[in-house]
Structure formats: structure tokens, C-alpha cells
Design a binder for these strands. Structure first.
Lengths: 121, 121
DNA sequence: CCGGATCCCTTGCGATACTG
DNA sequence: CAGTATCGCAAGGGATCCGG
């Protein structure tokens, strides 16, 4: 039932790597959140809440936590009167920009490819 | 409640483009399927079924259909005794390789970044 | 061999309300 | 302001069987 590992080690590793990457970007919101923070450099909770159309505070909270665990963003609590929390991309998080740019470019090409007329598939 | 569209047109377009791209790669299986076909150039249904660990025929069937709709793969029915179906990437589908490679590279870096020891987060 | 149909369980995620 | 808690639906996806 199992192929001998030696025969597919490289492919398997590739697969796993892709899987890891996709795992970080799972759900409906992650890239938008990253994209938002990336664009503004530093961003507060409620600002992101506003940037990302349609997300709920519960989701945002959950997603941010996951991103933090994955070392993509850093959370800083500011000692203002009503608490303020700032999020920013880590050095590692910033390396995602390449991928986002790639996806952006590809997405535009794709839209042209699939249909030249409408804007929402 | 709505920002004036003119102020965010480019950002919105970027968002949409990323969304389009992610939409094509949604679900648990798409990239693995593409990756499989890409690696072998042409691939039959049951071969892919074997390549992609854990996928069910129902899922594979569904995913392939979506990929075909999105013009990423091409389906060819071969007139053999028991029917045979071959899938291959379209020219457009092949442009995804860049992204997959990117994700692969990033995924490897990510694993190192998050933890240097284990292999499954 | 290819893949559709059905059944069912799990998960994602939205809405709302509440706390420090 | 920044989150947490609870509820509940609907989509995703696995197992199995069926038909061309």
C-alpha cells in the first residue's frame, strides 16, 4: 500500500512544501489580511476589519492568531487609553509578497483567459 | 459606509485578481492534481487518482471538471476498449508552474522558519 | 475504466451578544 | 478598542454503490 519512500522523496517533499504553503493561506481571508497589513505596513485590528470586506471580528481574530503562530505577523499591544493593537508583517511574512504578486498577475491573466467580458466568475 | 471607488480601484483590482487565482486553486486538491499532470505531461484519471494521496474518485472528478471549465486542463477521451481519459495542461494551465514553484520554495522556507525540527505542523 | 448519485458527518464561518 | 463565547446553518468532502 505504500510506495518505497526512496522512489519519490523529491516529489513528496515538493508536495509537502506546497501543502505547507497552502495551509498557511487557507480559509477565505488570510491573503486579504496579509495584503492589507503589507500595504499599510502597520495596521490595527479595527482597521483591518474595515479593509477586508465582509470579515467578522471573530474570523479576523482567529485568522490573525493563526498568522501569528505561523510567524508571519507580529502583534504589539499599545498602552493607549482604550487598548490598541498593531499588527505588522515579520521579515518572513514579507517574503509572501512575491507570492501575492504572482497570484495577482496570474489572476489577471486568468480572467482574460477564461472570459474577456465579465468581472465575476 | 462605502469608500469612494476611485480611491481604491487599484487595490480592489489586485484583491479581485488574487481572489480569482485563489478561487481556481481552492479546495484541498487542485494544486496536487495540476502538479501531477504537470509532472507527467499527460495523465489518465486513475493515474491521477493514484498520484494524489487520499483523494476520492468523486472529488477527483469534480475537481477535474472545474479545472477544465477554468481552461487549465484539457480532457481527451481515448477510444480504447474500456474507456480511457487523458488529461493534460493547456498552455494557460502551464503558466501555473511558476506559482507552484514559488509555493514550493516558500513552503520549504516556511517550515524552516516556523520550526526546525518537526515535519507536520 | 470513468465518473455520477446518494448518504452522512465534519468543518468553516456568519450573526449576535458579551467582557476587559 | 480588541477580542471571546455561543449558536447554528451550509458547504466540503469521505464512503459506497451504480451505470455507461
Amino acid at each position: 500500500m505504500e510506495c518505497k519512500p526512496e522512489f519519490q522523496t523529491d516529489r513528496k517533499k515538493e508536495m509537502m512544501a506546497v501543502h505547507d504553503a497552502m495551509d498557511v493561506l487557507n480559509g477565505k481571508w488570510k491573503i486579504y489580511i496579509i495584503s492589507s497589513i503589507c500595504h499599510y505596513n502597520k495596521r490595527r485590528f479595527s482597521d483591518i476589519l474595515n479593509d477586508v470586506t465582509g470579515i467578522s471580528n471573530k474570523m479576523l481574530s482567529k485568522e490573525l492568531k493563526e498568522l501569528e503562530i505561523n510567524k508571519l505577523i507580529e502583534r504589539t499591544v499599545l498602552d493607549t487609553h482604550p487598548i490598541t493593537v498593531q499588527y505588522e508583517l515579520t521579515k518572513h511574512g514579507k517574503t509572501l509578497k512575491t507570492i501575492i504578486d504572482n497570484l495577482t498577475a496570474w489572476g489577471m491573466e486568468h480572467r482574460k483567459e477564461v472570459t474577456g467580458k465579465n468581472q465575476q466568475e
